[in-house]
Design a protein around this nucleic acid. Structure first.
Lengths: 380, 380
DNA sequence: TTGAAAGCGCTACCAT
DNA sequence: ATGGTAGCGCTTTCAA
């Protein structure tokens, strides 16, 4: 029960007009740099506006134009640092153009996702950017129904999955997952590896499927060992990496290299290798995809295919700006190239394959409990 | 140029009113759950609004109320994952209350910061949250001048630095930096460490200063070795951690434990220890502050004082909601407790102090170049 | 080239 | 308890 009202009477366009004895519409036109305003008048108006410290009210403008100069970004969660990079790239384009970014997390939950879309539409965002591992049919329909420009990041719409061609009304920006992993396979093949293991990402993710395809394509094209047991199912997190690595490295004839569909799983693989007494990269080469911050750390020094996150954000921003100036544009798909960053987790294939010591703990959960969990928490 | 206009004629409050034969103001009142509306009328209106799929226009409401139901968050940069956690916590409170979050990064630049504040004010944000290592006088004044509620995170206003008491008009939410590091010192002292090194954060950061104070207080209170050479200057990044660690571990009588003012520097310390052939935690105990995601990784397993990032965000959100319902509230300072997460980077002090092998490279830059940089970049 | 006026959709005030 | 109505600050016809 308090004083809610905000005084904050700002300088309005009418104030500027009166100060100059001109009409508000003329001021509006001048501010928008319309050519119909006489250069002299325009100059006077601009000067006065600056002098009076005039700030256009975003709300008033939005009310009449039905455009809020803002875009909504939907993230699956706030935990993954890569999303920051994407937003950073996006903002670097959008902010100078006068747009603001609204963010919401779906917390990987469909209901929350729909609520977020709702909230954005209500706020008249000019576009919605969805960075998501998965987007179900219903959510897609809702997005399509709101009639706003939509850009999908890292996620091809469901109807592309088979045709691999844009048939939806959404723009798409992503990275060359297939080509990136393919290049990783070639890098390892060049080092003499013939038997390479792969840990996949979650199957619902189109990007993860592309990465798996890159692996299969590479193995086939380069004539490497294509035994089915060399592909282990994963899900993009550290523990899945450990599980996959245990599976792969316990094989009777273990691979000399492992490609994880993302860096986090590569870290899990490193941990398992260490537990088995396998030296990386001497005994085992390990690579990932994404190039998260920690991959560059000397203790890790992971060879990986870099996700061009900032560039993805920039690309989304640029596409949006294009779309804002011409709504009739037909949807496009942008696939950004990836680079292979070679660090110290890859080396020539060993001449003799050391099987490594069998894992001390058979029970992964118990193992994790001892390795992962803190032993104590002290409340300061 | 292209077709800019958006059709999207939505259902308005007047539409709902006409459909029911009531006045728009009554609909408005009903929607706001005002008590003056008769329960039956209210029910009819709610039902019709839902049936017609009515969505209030945020812009129109903002125009008349001068409140946008949105808050602006200013981050120093998008790189640090901890900010995501804070925003996540903030959103978890604000979004259910009908608020949206606008984010902007200052890219650690004063001009950009001011521009961001500007853009937020123009958009009639209801409050500004500043998460920043440093905020100069000018920026502070600008913030104060815009007459909006401001919450400072992790940064006490300049005028608190000496008095250590809230005299500014800003709310503050942070963590118990001093107490956290103090607890870390005690943890190490309990393990028998008497000679502990400390790598500081940047001096402009009030939080970093508090961490240093926690170290000095702990050392003094527990009667540990307070030699001045045990404190090395750092700046919160990995390389600063390496520099500080080289300094500390090259001391004629090296410390048996190192506290880094944040986890990143602790990682740098780990790397240097490894290079010197020092085993962690057998020969050297290492601790950090923050508990970033990677600190929990088995390969790292860093003992650290956890930054309660999510809780900080929630606390900011709750404070904001309080302030929105009562503007007259006097500013408060919230200091959240920290927990010490004990992992595997700390152990009992060694009975005999192994000096470790001297560092192979005297030139830090060359050393970093070999350790940090990728050897090759392949364009896929 | 400039001005006058009509709203955008909502809330808030005052009258009923 | 409900209805009428006047704006919020801007853009956008249309007239001058």
């Amino acid at each position: 029960m308090g004083a809610r009202r905000r005084a904050k009477r700002g300088v309005t366009i009418v104030d500027v007009a009166e100060a100059l004895g001109v009409a508000p519409s003329t001021v509006s036109n001048a501010l928008h740099d319309k050519d119909i305003v006489a250069p002299r008048t325009k100059a006077r108006i601009m000067a006065m506006a600056k002098a009076m410290n005039y700030e256009a009210s975003a709300a008033a403008r939005a009310l009449v134009t039905r455009q809020s100069s803002s875009v909504g970004v939907i993230l699956p969660d706030f935990a993954n640092p890569v999303f920051n990079e994407i937003i950073s790239g996006l903002n670097s384009i959008l902010v100078p153009a006068g747009y603001a970014t609204l963010v919401a997390s779906t917390a990987n939950d469909g209901r929350t996702c729909k609520a977020a879309i709702h909230a954005f539409v209500k706020r008249d965002v000019d576009a919605i950017v969805v960075i998501s591992q998965c987007l179900d049919i219903e959510e897609t329909a809702q997005l399509a129904g709101c009639g706003l420009p939509v850009v999908l990041v890292h996620r091809t719409p469901a109807d592309w999955q088979t045709t691999h061609a844009p048939s939806s009304t959404f723009d798409y920006v992503g990275m060359d997952n297939t080509g990136g992993v393919y290049a990783l396979v070639r890098h390892l093949a060049d080092l003499g590896h013939r038997r390479i293991g792969f840990i996949t990402g979650p199957k619902q993710s189109s990007a993860a499927c592309e990465r798996t395809r890159g692996f299969r394509d590479g193995v086939a094209a380069l004539g490497l060992d294509a035994a089915p047991e060399l592909v282990a199912d994963g899900s993009y997190d550290f523990i899945a990496g450990m599980r996959g690595a245990r599976e792969l490295l316990s094989l009777p004839q273990r691979p000399t290299a492992v490609i994880a569909a993302n860096d986090l799983m590569a870290f899990g693989t490193m941990d398992v290798a260490q537990q088995m007494g396998l030296s990386v990269p001497k005994d085992l080469s390990i690579v990932g995809v994404d190039d998260v911050f920690f991959s560059a750390f000397p203790m890790i020094s992971l060879t990986t295919a870099r996700q061009p996150a900032t560039e993805i954000g920039e690309s989304v921003g640029e596409r949006l700006l294009e779309r804002f100036s011409d709504e009739a544009l037909s949807p496009i798909a942008v696939t950004l190239p990836v680079e292979i960053i070679v660090r110290h987790s890859t080396a020539e294939a060993p001449s003799r394959v050391d099987p490594g010591s069998p894992l001390s703990t058979d029970n992964l959960e118990a193992y994790l409990a001892s390795r992962w969990k803190p032993s104590t928490i002290i409340v300061a």
